[in-house]
Amino acid sequence: MSTRYAALLRGINVSGHRRVPMAELRELLGELGHEGVATHLQSGNAAFRSASEDEGALAAELERAIEDRFGFPVDCLVRSAAYLAAVADACPFPAATLEGRQLHVTYFDRAVEAARFAPLDAEDFLPEEFRLGDRALYLYAPDGLGRSKLAVALGRPAVTRGLVATSRNWNTVLKLVEMTRD
């Protein structure tokens, strides 16, 4: 029995830095014994099938393999198809009525307490909003991420210290669900 997963790599292929070609990522995942490997975009999204049921172990294995192959560390999160679908289904915003660039999900390596975000005064950022989910944060940014003051505040070290986090726009969230579907 095997499970479908998505690997979410953080901070690669940005402005020509920390290059991880997707063809090489697919090859690397295959060398690690995973099957049905596919990638999406150049920003570090891969789907694969594995007999392992340990997301943390899969992520650590991929991190070691990437550093060995490419010579630099890359934080990776691995999430099951069921988890990815549950995150999409639990979206607290009206996703079907929004553009993909207006809605984002930040995936975390572990559950995050709401107290971490308490210093942020939500009123200061309206109409932008965020909601916490299961190891995820949903961000509604009507003018897109590039203009989002809330995204900047949410990414400050005081908020993210000690977390591994990586964000995807809603179009990519849905594509990952599709890629990991049986």
Rank of each mutant, 00 (worst) to 15 (best):
Gly146Asn: 04
Leu32Arg: 00
Gly33Ala: 06
Asn171Cys: 02
Asp143Lys: 06
Asn171Val: 03
Gln102Cys: 04
Thr180Trp: 12
Val112Gly: 07
Phe108Asn: 10
Asn45Gln: 11
His40Ile: 00
Ser43Gln: 11
Glu61Tyr: 04
Ser148Ala: 11
Glu129Tyr: 03
Thr106Trp: 07
Asp182Thr: 10
Ala118Phe: 12
Val177Trp: 01
Asn171Thr: 13
Thr172Tyr: 04
Glu67His: 03
Trp170Glu: 01
Glu113Lys: 12
Leu145Thr: 00
Ala81Trp: 02
Arg69Glu: 03
Asp109Glu: 05
Val159Gln: 05
Thr166Arg: 01
Ala115Ser: 15
Thr172His: 02
Ala141Ile: 02
Val87Phe: 02
His104Thr: 00
Val74Arg: 06
Arg181Ile: 01
Ala122Gly: 12
Arg116Met: 10
Arg116Thr: 13
Arg147Glu: 15
Arg110Phe: 14
Thr160Lys: 06
Asn169Ile: 09
Thr172Pro: 06
Arg101His: 13
Tyr5Met: 01
Leu174Cys: 15
Met179Arg: 10
Asp109Pro: 03
Ile12Pro: 00
Arg156Tyr: 07
Met179Lys: 04
Pro94Gln: 10
Ser43Glu: 08
Thr39Arg: 10
Gly44Ile: 04
Leu132Pro: 01
Leu120Tyr: 06
Arg135Val: 00
Arg49Ser: 15
Ile66Thr: 04
Val105Glu: 06
Pro21Ala: 02
Ala114Phe: 06
Ser80Ile: 07
Asp134Leu: 08
Arg147Asn: 15
Tyr83His: 15
Arg64Lys: 14
Glu128Phe: 09
Phe70Tyr: 14
His104Ala: 04
Glu61Lys: 12
Val74Leu: 05
Ser80Phe: 09
Ile66Met: 12
Leu32Glu: 12
Val37Gln: 08
Glu55Leu: 03
Ala7Leu: 07
Leu25Ile: 07
Ala86Glu: 14
Ala122Gln: 14
Ala82Leu: 13
Ala60His: 10
Leu32Ser: 08
Ala82Asn: 09
Gly155Leu: 08
Leu62Val: 07
Arg4Phe: 12
Ala96Ser: 11
Arg131Lys: 13
Leu62Tyr: 05
Ile12Leu: 08
Leu98Phe: 12
Gln42Tyr: 02
Leu8His: 02
Glu31Asp: 13
Glu67Cys: 10
Ser167Gly: 15
Leu9Asn: 05
Glu178Leu: 04
Leu176Cys: 12
Arg156Trp: 00
Lys175Gln: 09
Ala82Thr: 15
Met22Ile: 02
Leu145His: 09
Asp182Phe: 08
Ser43Ile: 10
Tyr5Val: 02
Glu35Phe: 01
Asp54Pro: 03
Leu98Pro: 09
Val152Glu: 13
Ala141Pro: 09
Arg131Cys: 08
Val173Met: 14
Arg79Phe: 08
Asp68Gly: 09
Arg10Ser: 06
Leu29Cys: 11
Arg131Phe: 05
Asp75Lys: 12
Ala96Val: 01
Arg64Ala: 13
Leu120His: 09
Arg116Ser: 01
Val87Cys: 03
Leu139Asn: 04
His34Val: 05
Glu129Met: 02
